[in-house]
Simulated scan of single mutants.
Amino acid sequence: MTHATSPADLADMDVLRHKSGLEFMRALASGDLPGAPIAAGMEIDLDEVDDGRIAFTGTPRFAHMNPMGGIHGGWYATILDSAMACAVMTRVPCGSTYTTLEFKVNITRALPADTKVRCVGLVAHAGRSTAVATGEIRGAADDRLYATGTTTCLIMALPPA
Rank of each mutant, 00 (worst) to 15 (best):
M1P: 05
M1H: 10
H3P: 00
A4M: 04
A4N: 06
T5E: 15
P7S: 06
A8V: 05
D12K: 07
M13V: 03
M13L: 05
V15P: 00
V15L: 10
L16V: 00
L16I: 00
R17M: 02
S20P: 00
L22S: 07
L22E: 09
E23M: 05
F24M: 10
M25C: 14
A27G: 07
A27P: 01
S30F: 08
S30R: 15
G31A: 07
D32N: 04
D32Q: 09
L33Q: 05
L33F: 01
G35C: 14
A36I: 04
A36K: 06
A39N: 12
G41Y: 01
M42C: 11
I44D: 02
L46S: 11
L46W: 03
D51Y: 03
D51L: 08
G52W: 03
G52N: 12
G52K: 12
G52Q: 11
I54W: 02
A55V: 12
F56M: 15
T57S: 15
G58E: 09
T59E: 11
N66D: 15
N66Q: 15
P67S: 12
G69V: 10
G69L: 10
G70S: 09
I71K: 03
G73M: 08
Y76N: 12
A77R: 13
T78C: 15
D81C: 07
S82T: 11
M84F: 04
M84Q: 12
A85C: 08
A85V: 04
C86W: 08
V88Q: 05
V88D: 02
V88C: 11
T90C: 04
P93W: 02
G95I: 02
G95M: 04
T97R: 11
T99H: 03
T99W: 02
L101E: 06
L101G: 07
K104G: 06
K104A: 11
V105L: 05
I107K: 11
T108Y: 07
T108D: 07
R109L: 05
L111W: 06
P112W: 06
P112T: 07
K116E: 05
V117M: 07
R118P: 00
A124N: 13
R128K: 13
V132W: 01
T134Y: 02
T134K: 10
G135N: 14
E136R: 14
E136V: 03
R138M: 09
A140H: 10
D142G: 02
D143A: 13
D143Q: 12
D143H: 08
R144V: 08
L145M: 10
Y146E: 11
A147M: 10
G149A: 05
T150F: 01
C153Q: 11
L154T: 03
L154M: 13
I155Y: 00
L158N: 05
P159F: 00
P160N: 08
A161C: 06
